[in-house]
């Protein structure tokens, strides 16, 4: 039983690698978006799950990553991966700048600041026509690795999977790091933690910066998948759907982030008949999930898991 977790992880990996086989082009595309959303869910795991802070402006960081990467690739001729890194860094810098003022006060100010920030970013990108193409948008080249262009989403999916796994690994290590532990202490009792000498602002700024970085990377990857950027892609509704998927997948688990990504990518396919009511259904599932399944979908899996395992002897 000691190795159960490792075995489960390996099984999940195997499934992820095998998934695209037998699917068509549209299937590859959907799988690629699952990975891209899962990276965002991962970033919200860091921010909400560990940091206990909420953001309703992650579409802003997503946009910064997408445009940052697209611009350095197009205008400065950066290679694809370097562009993605730049996209992440741009988002991270702005993440730190947004978190900085909001942290001097407790409560919901950070959420409000991120909301304003996302709108601000969208509007600036729209108005700054010389750089971003404004209304017409921006055409982004296909991703290429070491000189080879990734023609299909089939190969791109594996790149995205690799990035997701890398970031998931970083998230795991971050949770065990000094900052990760401090964040958890702060979340349990901010006053008690601060009395033990944990500086609240710096740790939360780090969490926010990392979260913005992940989201920026995801946005950059998304831009190369879409091939065309316009500011409408980064609306408030996107920020809200991000939050929804992260909560529904589970905020305390990397597998939950994956489930969240799958939810957001597949729900529009499944709910297609409901058209206009789609976002209403998102809202209802979000509230039901917070009320009855605060651990997200992944907690269901974990629950089944613990039932099947023989109870451990009391220590």
């Amino acid at each position: 039983m000691k190795h159960a977790r490792t075995i489960a992880t390996l099984l999940v990996l195997l499934v992820l690698v095998a998934l695209p086989f037998g699917l068509g082009h549209y299937g590859y595309y959907i799988l690629a978006t699952v990975m891209i959303y899962a990276i965002v869910a991962l970033s919200l795991n860091v921010l909400i799950g560990m940091g206990g802070q909420i953001s309703i402006g992650h579409a802003g960081f997503w946009a910064l990553g997408a445009y940052g990467s697209a611009l350095v690739v197009i205008k400065l001729g950066f290679p694809f991966l370097a562009g993605v890194l730049v996209g992440g860094l741009v988002a991270a810098i702005f993440g730190a700048l947004v978190a900085l003022p909001a942290l001097r006060v407790q409560g919901h100010y950070l959420a409000i600041a991120t909301l304003g920030f996302a709108l601000f970013v969208q509007q600036v990108l729209f108005e700054w026509e010389g750089l971003t193409g404004g209304r017409q948008g921006l055409f982004v080249p296909r991703p290429s690795l070491f000189g080879y262009e990734l023609q299909t989403d089939f190969s791109y999916y594996y790149v995205l999977l690799a990035v997701f796994l890398l970031l998931a690994w970083i998230t795991g290590n971050f949770a065990g790091s000094h900052t990760g532990r401090s964040l958890m202490a702060l979340k349990m009792s901010s006053v008690a933690a601060e009395c033990c000498g944990i500086a609240r602002p710096i740790h939360i700024i780090i969490a926010f910066t990392i979260s913005a970085f992940f989201t920026g990377v995801s946005g950059a990857l998304y831009g190369h998948l879409l091939g065309h950027l316009s500011t409408e892609t980064f609306s408030l509704a996107v920020s809200l759907s991000f939050l929804t998927m992260a909560v529904i997948g589970g905020l305390h688990s990397r597998a939950g982030a994956l489930l969240g990504g799958a939810y957001l990518a597949l729900a529009p396919e499944l709910l297609r008949e409901f058209k206009d009511a789609q976002m209403v259904i998102y809202g209802i599932t979000l509230i039901l999930c917070v009320q009855f399944l605060p651990g997200g979908l992944i907690s269901l899996v974990e629950r089944v898991w613990t039932i099947r395992r023989p109870p451990r002897a009391a220590p």
Partner: peptide
């Protein structure tokens, strides 16, 4: 936890906003 209530109000936002349009 207070974050949950906050998330629920965001759910309400989506419900009212899109229900009105719908």
């Amino acid at each position: 936890p207070p974050v949950n209530a906050l998330i629920a109000t965001i759910g309400l936002w989506m419900i009212f906003h899109h229900a009105a349009g719908w």
